[in-house]
Design a protein around this nucleic acid. Structure first.
Length: 239
RNA sequence: GACACCGUUACAA
């Protein structure tokens, strides 16, 4: 129940449930704390999250990777990368080992803060750690390169992940479509839809919207409208 | 007690 309320952003009701638990003599456990911390961070209330972390430690629970990953994610979403890096150092000092979730959170944070080099060096570190790479890590990295207009590297990474047996997702292609459109390369973006279908991926509303945006940016409104009709014909409803 | 299962964290317009 608490998780569901947190996901909906209803921290007030979640808090009421917590009080009810405590009043009934049911102590919170570490997972419940982490759930609440995630709820706070999703609402941008990272400070509240830190208070809960202090509280859970006082109650005898250890902050684990869920705790740190969640708080670091919250900091990254606020662009507070120095503080995120501080927590990263803190968790390592406490004997925790960053996992692939945390690497992707940090990388994404650096890219969103336009710090490509920092994000890329985390990726290199991740590879050297011999942690198992996954599709999210690649999606994040590809987004980083798309964000700086380096489509060459973005596609090289797409090829690299496939070579490693990590299948791109629709999200991977949405990122690439958006990147190409941002560079005005809308024809190539449209051609990507065929590559997707060859990989048995069905373009969704995000992909189509990115492509429509590309045509709009070029002022090719008739093409934009025809894509909207095409998506509808393919059973993808515009939103 | 063992085993199994089991609630919390990351990416796209």
């Amino acid at each position: 129940l608490i998780h569901g309320l947190c996901r909906l952003g209803n921290l007030e009701e979640a808090g009421r449930l917590v009080k009810q638990m405590v009043n009934s003599g049911l102590p919170l456990d570490g997972i419940t704390y982490n759930t609440l911390i995630s709820g706070c961070c999703k609402q941008g209330k990272v400070d509240e999250g830190f208070k809960l972390k202090d509280d859970m430690v006082k109650q005898g629970f250890k902050s684990d990777l869920y705790t740190y990953n969640t708080l670091i994610h919250g900091l990254c979403n606020k662009g507070k990368m120095d503080e995120a890096r501080g927590l990263w150092t803190e968790l390592k000092g406490g004997g925790l080992v960053p996992d692939v979730h945390l690497y992707s959170v940090m990388m994404d944070g650096y890219f969103k803060a336009s710090k490509l080099e920092e994000g890329k060096s985390l990726f290199d570190e991740l590879v050297n750690q011999k942690l198992v790479l996954n599709v999210v890590v690649y999606n994040v990295l590809i987004k980083g390169y798309c964000g700086v207009g380096n489509m060459m590297e973005a596609f090289r990474l797409r090829d690299e992940m496939k070579a490693k047996g990590i299948n791109p997702t629709v999200g991977t292609y949405s990122t690439l479509v958006h990147g190409l459109c941002g560079a005005g390369r809308v024809g190539e973006a449209k051609a990507l839809f065929d590559e997707m279908r060859e990989e048995n991926l069905l373009p969704n509303v995000v992909c189509y919207t990115a492509l429509i945006g590309g045509y709009c940016k070029l002022g090719e409104m008739e093409n934009a409208v025809s894509i909207m009709q095409e998506m509808t014909a393919c059973g993808v409803a515009p939103n």
